[in-house]
């Protein structure tokens, strides 16, 4: 029978046992995962099983790491998205969270664009660290993504996104994410991108300030290829700030909409 050990195809005798496989391929492994679930004791394997053998604390090779990271995915997801490319315009509260979710899920290539630097006030909701204050956000995020999943190719552009550089920046993407802060920037990017790229979907966000109910944040299809996440009305304004929970919810609505589009599903 054929099974996969750390994502490599292996021929084994029928009725082979998990511990026998460990003995043969990685005797030092102390964490054994079968078909996405940790195995507590020895078991008989069957044709097509996927086994991941890990030694805790050991930094795995790139191939092994990929197999390990993706072991908990729904089967087939990783294969489909590892060749895809997603653009993220703005890497503040929305964009930094979206980029991390998409890197963890194994999107092959991310293109990040933002002109801004990391400031202390960003740390209430954005995925940066105190020792990154003052760095360009795209550079800081690129480093954070590398530490999470070095298998993702990240292009970082520290610049202002305009109607004129959309093709240069995002001409190759399968999906574009609008993740800006200012309403005017959101509308400008959305209108120009949808007009310039008649085949490519865009996932935007509007309305995620304050601490209103989580359940008012939704994903909607508002026009052809244009998906909008958020409650649609709750603007950031004096007296109603942007905070990690709701911004994170909206960001993950966007990330899941992107994932669904890459897998050929309607986001909502």
């Amino acid at each position: 029978m054929q099974i996969f050990v750390n994502e490599h195809s292996c021929e084994l005798a029928e009725e082979s046992c998990l511990f026998t496989v460990r003995e043969r391929y990685k005797p030092t492994a102390d964490l054994l995962i079968v078909n996405g679930y940790p195995a507590q004791k020895d078991q008989v394997l069957k044709d097509g099983d996927r086994v991941v053998l890990i030694r805790r604390g050991e930094q795995p090779s790139a191939d092994e790491l990929e197999a390990l990271m993706m072991a908990r995915h729904t089967p087939g997801v990783h294969k489909k998205i590892r060749t895809s490319c997603v653009g993220i315009a703005g890497v503040g509260g929305l964009g930094s969270n979206i980029a991390i979710a998409l890197a963890r899920v194994g999107v092959g290539q991310l293109i990040l664009a933002d002109f801004d630097l990391v400031e202390p006030s960003n740390l209430n909701r954005q995925q940066y660290f105190i020792d990154q204050i003052g760095l360009p956000k795209v550079m800081a995020l690129q480093e954070n993504l590398r530490r999470i999943n070095p298998g993702v190719r990240v292009q970082a552009h520290q610049l202002k996104v305009t109607a004129d550089n959309l093709t240069e920046l995002f001409g190759q993407v399968d999906v574009l994410v609008e993740a800006f802060d200012a309403a005017e920037q959101k509308a400008l990017l959305t209108s120009n991108f949808l007009q310039q790229f008649p085949q490519v979907p865009l996932v935007a966000a509007s309305g995620m300030a304050g601490y209103e109910s989580s359940n008012s944040i939704q994903t909607r299809r508002v026009a052809d290829r244009f998906y909008l996440c958020g409650d649609g009305v709750t603007a950031a304004q004096p007296g109603r700030g942007l905070m990690a929970p709701r911004v994170g919810i909206a960001a993950h609505h966007q990330a899941n909409a992107v994932l669904r589009l890459l897998l050929g599903e309607e986001p909502c």
């Binding site: 703005g90 503040g92 509260g93 929305l94 964009g95 993740a179 800006f180 802060d181 200012a182 309403a183 005017e184 959101k186 509308a187 959305t190 935007a204 966000a205 509007s206 309305g207 995620m208 300030a209 508002v222 026009a223 244009f226 909008l228 649609g232 009305v233 709750t234 603007a235 950031a236 304004q237 942007l242 911004v247």
Partner: peptide, 10 residues
């Protein structure tokens, strides 16, 4: 027409 109004925040 579809008119989609953005509000600030992100």
């Amino acid at each position: 027409l579809e008119l989609i109004q953005f509000v600030g925040g992100g």
